[in-house]
Structures are given as C-alpha cells and as structure tokens.
Nucleic acid binder design. Structure first.
Length: 431
RNA sequence: GGGGAGAUAGCCAAGUGGCCAACGGCAACAGACUGUAAAUCUGUCCUCUUCGGAGUUCGAAGGUUCGAAUCCUUCUCUCCCCA
C-alpha cells in the first residue's frame, strides 16, 4: 500500500477529532519518514468490540499515512490487569481463557491492517513473548530500579484507587506495560505508542523508562474517549456491547447499530470510523444537513464499517433486510419475498420453531408470544406490550391481546415475523 | 477502643403504626410525533394474572400489635468524628 503523497498523520488525527494528548516533538519525529508505532489491546474478551475499533482505526490511519502500525496483544499484561479506569480490583483471567481471547483478537486485528511487505507493513506482537522468560527478580532489579514508587503513585489510575485499595499486582501494571515500550523501542526501533486517553499514564511510564534506562527518546499520543452526544458510553446498546465477532453480534445488528446513531454522533463517527477524505466528509455532512431524513451519514458509516469488519455480502444482506423492515411498504415487501431471500434476510434475527398443526388449529396470541415462543417471559408482559401497541406480526400491528393466531398469515406458508417494539424482530418457523 | 449516623425497588431518594407495592427523580422499555435522529409529550416500570385480582418485598433473624418499611431485641454491613 503506497500512497502518492504521504499524509501528515497528526493533521489527519486532528481533523478527525482523534487527538487528545501528544508528547512534544512527536509531529516532528513523524515528519522525518516512516516510523513504527503501536497500540496495545487488552485481552479481556474473546472478541474486540466497537470501542476497540477506535484504536484499530488509529492504526489504520497511521498506516495510511505511510507509517508502520504494530498491534500488541497483551498476553502478559492481560495476566496482570490494568487498573486504569477501574474503580475496583479486577478478577484475573485464567490462562486458558486468556489464550482463547488472545487468539481471537489477533485474528480480528489481522483483518484490518495491511500485512503485505513494504515500508508500512503491519505487525502483530505479543508481550508474553518477552515476558515469559523474564524472572521476577530480574525484572525488579533491571526495570523496577529505574522508576520510583513516588513516580508510580502520582499516576491518576493509582491515585484514584488509594482510598479503596489497589493490589500490588495492579499497581505494578504500568511498569509491565512500560517495559513493553522499552523492549519494543530497543529491539524493534519502536518510536511511538498510541492509545486511548486513559492510557496516557501507562504510556508515559514507558517513555520515562526508556529515558532512564538508556537515555533514549520515545513519543506518545492518545485519542479522546468517545462519548455519545447525550454523554453516555459509546458502543453499548440495550442488548449490551456491540462486538466485532459475528457470532456475538450479527452483521445485521452491527449494521443497525451504526444506522441508529444520532445525527450529532454520526458527524463524529464518519471522521473516526471511515477513511473518507476531509473534503468528502465535509461534502457529505453538508448534504446530510440539507436533507437529514435521507440519513446519508448513517448509511455511509454503516456501509464502510460493516464491509470492513464483516464483508461486502454481509453488508448487502443487512442492507436488504433493513430496507424491507424499515421501507415504505414493508408488509407487501415481506409477502413478495421468496423463501431463500426471506431466510437470508433474516439470518441475523432470532428464530423460534413452533408447531404448524397447533397454529392451524389457532393459538391464543398471548400463548404464542410467551409460552410457545419465549419472545416474552410472561403472558402478562406480552399483554401489556400488545395493549400499548408495541407488537406487530408481519409488520402489521396487533391490538387485541385476546386474539387467536392462525396459519392464514404465514409467509411462504411457513414463517411469521414477530416484532417486539420497533427494532426487535423474531422469526417464527412453523413446522 | 469511645461516640455518632445510616442500610428502602437497577441507581438516587421520600416515607417514621393502618390511606404503602411504598412520593419524587434518573436510567430502562413501549407509544405518539419524526427521519430507524434529537427534543418533546404519554404510558409501563417487584413477580404472576383468566386484568377482576393474587403472591413476595423496605440489610438479616426474632418479637410487640388486630395490623409494621415504620415500635422493641439481637446480629451483619457501611460511613463519619474522637483516641
């Protein structure tokens, strides 16, 4: 991946709103030619979530600007536990789980960066590799000696835990992460560490260590914590976290997550999560403001991100499903679908099997919604939502909680599309 | 060790013998309006319900009473002040 004119990475981050803190001299260092920079990923789950996507994009932009991005998976740091942003001591992961998480994350990271040979070839490293044979005594002699407790205690992540308590393990985390930077600097000529703003403290311990151990110079920058316009956390919905793993979050849901972002948020997201140029973004934002109901921004983000994280096919399927579900004449569109299309459209929608013969005999609506399908935990809840107009079958509102559901409405003589609220769909399959 | 304050639904927070399934706010969910947006308005928000009700709650366990979140006893935990 060679670009005709390498972009200025810092400028790029600035207009995208992705620059929080930067160490003096960083921009100058970057301007001298391609350098290596890395970001660490904490293996707390077996999949990255959209929150991690910010850091992935930082690496991607870094690479687009002609530099060499390195993703570090925390096989060692994951065993310790980062106290940053945590109000209480964490539970340690067992090694088996850690290994699973590590491999899963590594695989995901490989999708985003360009690993083909060249001056900006991406790399993935695992800090377990240089920690596994580093004994405790050697570590406290060779590394710990260079950093004072006073320095470590001054960090925000530690300060905030002074009242409630912090274990020695978590306290030493910054030193472990700091040594990563030193090691990479020493052996891979790593010049820059990046990360979320909560990592600033850990990162600077690294640059400090490099200076004290060898008088070397290393640089750092962080990205701001992304928040939604209403101040709530980014990347979570009613259903929980939005994951990159299609098993955890279906491509349809993933696509919908971006489609649902508010206007204000999407103006930020388009900058962070797409590689569109500044001019294109500005044009699109202007077009969006002209006719916001077209949701141009949401569509553009959802498209690019879904394709990057999943695939073009997944995007097309999600898009098609969304058009049918949210389009102008959804009921008609539904009944026109042939079975294959219908199934592929609703691939990401929970499916429930029910008995066709019972349905032919007629099932009381509430039985169907609660006992038979488990869509509602109780009949009372089903009744309440039906009464308040929150339930649709095949995109047609049902209003009578005492109604019977028969087989006459079956799509393709086999399926019923149940809708709970506006955005939760279930496909009932009559066998 | 001494003294004081407190523990109420996801969170904050009223309530000190019956009118309490418990004011109010936030969060959440649904509806209306829209554009699958925001804001606003409305409804739901312990569990179950044949929507008439039924059952289980107010740190825990006992007790007083016709009746307790409210009074008494013991226990557990949290916070503050003094040593």
């Amino acid at each position: 991946m060679t670009l005709p004119q390498p972009l200025n990475f810092i400028e790029e981050l600035k207009w995208r709103g992705m620059l929080q803190d930067i160490m003096p001299g960083t921009e100058e260092m970057l301007s001298k030619g391609p350098v290596k920079g890395y970001i660490g990923f904490d293996p707390t789950a077996d999949s990255l979530g959209v929150g991690n996507l910010v850091q992935v994009m930082t690496l991607l932009h870094f690479q687009r600007c002609g530099h060499q991005p390195v993703a570090l998976v925390g096989g060692a740091t994951g065993m310790v536990g980062d106290p940053s942003g945590k109000s209480a001591e964490r539970n340690l992961l067992n090694e088996e789980q850690l290994q699973i998480n590590l491999n899963a994350q590594r695989k995901q990271l490989e999708k985003f960066l360009d690993f083909s040979a060249g001056p900006s070839q991406a790399m993935i490293v695992n800090n377990y590799d240089w920690f596994k044979n580093f004994s405790f005594l050697d570590f406290i002699r060779d590394v710990g000696k260079h950093i004072t407790i006073n320095y470590m205690m001054a960090k925000d992540s530690v300060q905030r835990r002074m009242e409630t308590g912090i274990s020695f393990t978590e306290f030493s985390y910054q030193l472990v992460q700091g040594y990563d930077f030193y090691y990479l600097w020493k052996h891979l000529d790593m010049k820059l560490q990046m990360g979320g703003s909560d990592q600033w403290g850990n990162i600077t311990t690294g640059t400090e260590l490099i200076r004290r151990m060898e008088g070397g110079e290393a640089f750092a920058l962080t990205t701001p914590l992304i928040k939604k316009a209403d101040g709530t956390k980014f990347g979570k919905t009613e259903g929980g976290n939005i994951w990159l793993d299609p098993v955890r979050t279906s491509p349809y849901k993933f696509f919908q997550f971006w489609m649902n972002s508010s206007d204000d948020d999407s103006k930020n997201y388009i900058r962070i999560f797409t590689t569109m140029t500044k001019a294109d973004v500005e044009t699109l934002v202007a077009a969006h403001d002209q006719s916001p109901h077209l949701r141009l921004l949401q569509k553009a983000i959802a498209k690019e991100v879904t394709i990057r994280v999943h695939s073009e096919e997944d995007y097309n399927a999600a898009m098609e499903a969304s058009e049918i579900l949210f389009g102008n004449a959804p009921t008609e569109a539904l009944s026109k679908l042939d079975e294959d299309t219908l199934l592929s459209v609703f691939e990401g929608v929970p499916q429930v099997n029910i008995s066709k013969s019972e349905l032919e005999a007629g099932i009381p609506l509430l039985d169907l919604l609660a006992d038979k399908s488990g869509i509602f935990p109780s009949r009372g809840e089903a009744r309440k939502l039906v009464q308040s107009g929150g339930v649709s079958i095949n995109k047609q509102k049902v209003s009578d909680p005492n109604a019977q559901q028969t087989a006459t409405d079956l799509l393709q003589n086999k399926y019923l599309l149940i809708q709970k609220g506006k955005k939760n769909y279930y496909l009932l399959i009559a066998n």
